[in-house]
Amino acid sequence: MAINGGCYDRRDDAPLLEEADLVGIDKPKQQLLDWVIDGDSSLKVISVFGMGGLGKTTLVRKVYEDTEVKRHFQNHAWITVSQPFNIKEILKDLIQQLFDELKRPLPQRLETMDDNKMKAVLKEVL
């Protein structure tokens, strides 16, 4: 979709949609909820894929915001990764969200930390 000669990315609108406005989200949402909180404590990756505009981001956001999911996990962060991505910005955003959630002051010199130091901070807090 073009706006004023530029490009408009509709994925940013996903958080603005109400669940009641979404058609057919209940079954996929419940399936994702079951996979996320199935009691298996091992690490896992769940991929949600499909053509643009199908509602993947909205679906995953609704699972992320679900109260049952929030109760199941000690820490929560929402990270958007695009191509190309900047790992330093992703790590910094993750640290900021987690420290905010834990109501802890941000580590000193976060802006000047290298990737390895940020990873060590994340490992320590998690």
Rank of each mutant, 00 (worst) to 15 (best):
M1Q: 12
A2W: 09
I3N: 06
N4T: 10
N4M: 11
G5P: 01
C7F: 15
C7V: 15
Y8T: 12
D9G: 06
D9E: 12
D9M: 01
R10N: 12
R11Y: 00
R11I: 09
D12S: 08
D13Y: 12
A14E: 00
A14Y: 02
P15F: 03
P15K: 08
P15D: 01
P15R: 02
L16D: 11
L16G: 14
L17S: 11
L17D: 06
E18S: 09
E18A: 13
A20L: 13
A20M: 11
D21I: 02
V23Y: 04
V23W: 08
D26R: 09
P28E: 03
P28M: 08
K29F: 02
Q30W: 05
Q30D: 13
L33G: 10
D34Q: 12
D34S: 15
W35E: 12
W35V: 04
V36Y: 07
G39M: 09
G39L: 03
D40F: 04
S41W: 03
L43P: 09
L43T: 08
L43C: 13
V45F: 09
V45Q: 07
I46P: 08
I46N: 09
S47V: 02
V48L: 08
V48K: 08
G50V: 02
M51P: 01
G52K: 01
G52Y: 13
G53K: 00
G55W: 00
K56D: 11
T57E: 04
T58D: 04
T58Q: 07
L59T: 03
V60K: 07
R61Y: 04
K62F: 01
K62H: 10
V63Y: 03
E65W: 03
V69H: 00
R71W: 00
R71N: 15
R71C: 04
H72L: 00
F73K: 01
F73H: 12
F73I: 09
N75L: 15
N75R: 15
N75E: 10
A77Y: 00
I79W: 04
T80Q: 10
V81Q: 02
V81D: 06
V81H: 06
S82Y: 09
P84M: 01
P84I: 02
F85N: 07
N86F: 09
K88C: 07
E89T: 04
D93S: 12
D93H: 06
I95E: 00
Q97N: 04
F99K: 13
F99D: 00
F99A: 00
F99C: 14
F99L: 09
F99T: 05
D100K: 15
E101A: 10
L102H: 15
P105A: 10
P105T: 14
L106N: 10
P107Q: 03
P107K: 07
R109G: 11
R109A: 12
R109H: 11
L110A: 10
L110T: 06
L110F: 02
E111L: 10
E111H: 11
T112N: 08
T112C: 07
T112H: 07
M113P: 06
D114A: 01
D114R: 05
D115Q: 13
N116G: 09
N116T: 08
K117R: 14
K117G: 02
M118Y: 05
K119P: 03
V121A: 03
V121M: 02
L122I: 14
K123L: 12
K123P: 04
E124A: 10
E124P: 03
E124L: 06
E124T: 11
V125M: 12
